[in-house]
Design a protein around this nucleic acid. Structure first.
Lengths: 211, 211, 211, 211
DNA sequence: CGATAAACGAGACGGTACGTCGCGTCTTCTG
DNA sequence: CAGAAGACGCGACGTACCGTCTCGTTTATCG
C-alpha cells in the first residue's frame, strides 16, 4: 500500500523519485518480513508475536521492520491483507463447470501444509479487530471477507446457469465455507480433503437443493 | 476444579475442610471479577484488556484478582469457560417439538444486548488459544465447543423422531450455527432475529431436507 | 509505652479495666516478639526484616504482633528503646574508683556474643531515622543517645574528683566511645577487650591528659 | 570497574572496543542518576527512596535506570561508592604544614550545604549493609572507609615529621573524625566549623599530645 | 571516482503492563 | 475476647515489549 506510491512514478518527471540519492530500500525484504510475520503469528498468536521475533526470524534488525510498517498492527494487517489478496486471485480462477468442482478448487489451496500457516495467522487477526477499533473494518475486509465474497460469486454463478435454485439466504450461505474452515483452524486441525468434501456435499449442496 | 477438593468431605473427619482458620475468601467477588473481565474484554479485546482495568471495573485491588487467577490468561480462560457453562445449561432446555423451534430457542439468548457482551468476549478467546499452546484445548472446550455440542444433540433428536432424514455430515453441520454467529460477532453485527431465521430456514433446514 | 496504661490499674477502681471480660493478653509474648525483632533486625537489617519473619521467629501470628505495635517502625523503635534502657541501667552502676575502670565496665557488656546481636540491631535504626522524619529524634534518644549520656556522666565524675582536668569539648568527647563501637559493628567486627582498651587508653584518656 | 574493559585497548586489534554498533549509552546520564540517587537518599532515606522518584528527579524513565543498575541495592552502592572516591581525592590534597590545618582542610568540604546531602546519603548505606550480606564489605570500603584511611595518612605524616609523638592506637584514632561526623549527620545537625574545631582541638590533638 | 544520502544493524530510551511481595487493616474461626 | 490464619487495598519492585531515537557501517547514485 505504502510502497505503491512510487509505483506510478514516471521516471524523471517526478521530483521526489527522480533525484533520490542514497541506498535504495531492498524491497525483497518486504516479502521476507511478511512471511516471517505470518509464521510467528501462526505459531504464537498475536499476543505471543514480537517484532523482535519477527525480525530475528527474517534475519534482520527491528528497525528494518519499523521502517516499513509503523506499528505491529499495521504489520499484521498488511501481512494478512496480502495473504487474502492471494486468496482472491485464486478465487477468480476456478471454473470447472460445476459448483462442486469450483468450491473444491477454491478450498484445495489450503490442503497443503504450507498454507496451513496462513490460515492460522489469519485467524489471529481477530485479536487485532477487538483491540483496535479503527482496524475492525480492515480486518473484516482483509481476513475472511474476500473469501466470503468468492463463495458468493461461485454460488451465484451456479444459480445463474440454472444448476441450483436461488437460495433463501445467499449471504449467510456464502459465509459457511470460510467460517467452518476457520473453525478447523481454531481447533488446530488440518483442512483435509475429506473435510472439504463433507462440507460441500453435506452442507452447501444439500442446502441449495433443499432450499 | 477448585471446588472438587471439598467434594469428598462429609463430616468433621476431613482435615482439609474441617478446621481452616483465617478470613474466608469472598467468593461473591469471583463472579464480579469474571463479569468485569468479560465486559472489558468485550469492549477492548484481549490486547486492550488490563488487569488494572478489570480490577477498577470490579471495584477492588489488583492483588485480589491475582490471588484468584495467577495470570491474565487464566483469568480470561476462566471467564469464558464459565460463560459457556451457562450456554450449555441453556442448550439442554429447549424442547419445542420441532427442530426449528429448538434451534430458535437456542439462539434467542444471544438476541438481547446484554448477551452480546458475552459473545464479544468469547471471540477474544482465540487470541489466548494462539498465544498459549497449553490452553488451546481448554479454549476449544470452553468457547464454542459446548455450543456445537448442543446443536448436534438438537439435530440428532429431530432425526431420531423422524422429522428429517439423517444428514450426510452431522458433525460439520452442527458447527454451522455457532460459527456463523461468531462471524456476526467478528463483524460487530448484532445477532438479530432476522439473522437467526435466515440461518435456520436458509441453511440448516434446507441442508437437512436436501441431504 | 502503650502497655504501660494498664500497669497501674488497681482492680476495681478503674471502671475501664475492672470489668474486662475475655482472654487476657499474654504480656510474656511482648518480650519474645521484641527479642525476635532484634534477632531478625541484626541478621537481615531493617530492609530485610519482615513482620512475617519476626512473627515466625517468635512462633506466633502476624496479627499478634500488630495488636501490640501498630507499625513496623514502632516495633523497631520499641525494640531498640528497651535495649538501650538496659544500657542506661548498666551505665549508672559502674563506680570502680577510676575513670578507666568505669569506662571498661561500661563497654564490657558488649563483649559477649549475645550482646552483639543488640548492637547490630541498634545500628539498623539509622535506616528508620532517614525514612521517617518524625522518628529521627526518637531514634537518637533510643539508640546511642543514652550511651553518650552515660559516657558524659562518667567523664564528668572523674573531672569532679580531680582525676583529670576538664576537657575542652566534653560533649564531643562523650560521643567517641559509642560511635567507635558503632563503627566496629558496622564492619561486623566484634567489640573485643583489646579494642576497648585501645579505645580508652589510646584515645579517651590521652585526650583528657593532653587537653 | 566497568571502565576497566577498555583499559587494555590500545589499537584496532581489540575486539571488545573495536566495532560495537548500536546507539551509544549516554554515560552523562550515569552521573545525573547517581546524583539524583544521593539527593533522594539523603532526603527520604533508603526505605523512602524509590526508583521512580530517582528517575523522575533525574528527568528520565525508570527503564533507563534499570538498564545501568539491575537493582536498587546496586544503584545505592554505586552512588555511595563514587561519592567516597571523590572524598579520597580530596583527602590527598591537603598539605598545610600542620596536622591541625590538614584535618580542618579535610573536613571543610562537608561544611557547605551542598555536601551535607552527600553525608546524609552515605549514612543511609548502613541499611544496605545489613540487608544484603554480599555487599557488607563493599559498603565498608565505599562508605567511611576511605575517609578513615585519609585520617590515618594525615596523622602518620604529622608523626613522621615530628609534629607529634606516635599514638598508642593509631587505627582507632583515625576513625574518630569520620565517625563523629557521621554522628552529627545522624542527628541531622550540620557539620559546622565550630564542631570541626572542637573535634580537632578537643579530641584529636589532645589525644596525640597526651599519648 | 569521490561525495553524499539513505538503508541497515545494533541497541539506548521513554512508556506502560505484567506478576510478585511486603505493609497494615479486616474478617472469620477456635480456644 | 486473644490468638491463628489469611483475605484485602495499596504501592514498589524488577521484567518485557512497544515504538522512537541515535549511533556507526554499508551501498547506491550523483557531481
Amino acid at each position: 500500500m505504502r510502497a505503491l506510491q512510487a509505483a506510478g512514478a514516471k521516471a524523471e518527471s517526478s521530483p521526489t523519485t527522480a533525484a533520490r540519492p542514497g541506498r535504495k530500500r531492498d524491497h525483497t525484504r518486504d516479502a521476507v518480513i511478511l512471511e516471517s510475520t505470518l509464521a510467528v503469528l501462526a505459531e504464537l498468536g498475536y499476543e505471543g508475536m514480537t517484532i523482535d521475533l519477527v525480525a530475528a526470524h527474517a534475519g534482520m534488525a527491528r528497525a528494518t521492520v519499523y521502517r516499513r510498517w509503523p506499528t505491529k498492527v499495521d504489520l499484521v494487517v498488511d501481512a494478512v491483507t496480502r495473504l487474502s489478496q492471494g486468496d482472491a486471485d485464486v478465487a477468480q480462477l476456478p471454473d470447472t463447470g460445476t459448483l462442486r468442482g469450483d468450491l473444491l478448487a477454491m478450498i484445495r489451496p489450503f490442503d497443503d501444509a504450507q498454507q496451513q500457516v496462513r490460515i492460522q495467522a489469519m485467524v489471529s487477526l481477530v485479536a487485532v479487530a477487538r483491540s483496535d477499533h479503527r482496524l475492525a473494518e480492515i480486518a473484516k475486509d482483509a481476513g475472511i471477507g474476500p473469501w466470503i465474497h468468492a463463495s458468493r460469486v461461485l454460488i451465484q454463478r451456479a444459480v445463474d446457469r440454472g444448476e441450483y435454485p436461488p437460495p433463501a439466504d445467499p449471504d449467510t450461505l456464502a459465509e459457511v465455507i470460510p467460517m467452518l474452515c476457520v473453525s478447523r483452524a481454531l481447533q488446530r486441525l488440518p483442512i483435509t480433503r475429506e473435510f472439504s468434501i463433507g462440507l460441500i456435499d453435506g452442507v452447501i449442496l444439500p442446502a441449495l437443493r433443499g432450499g
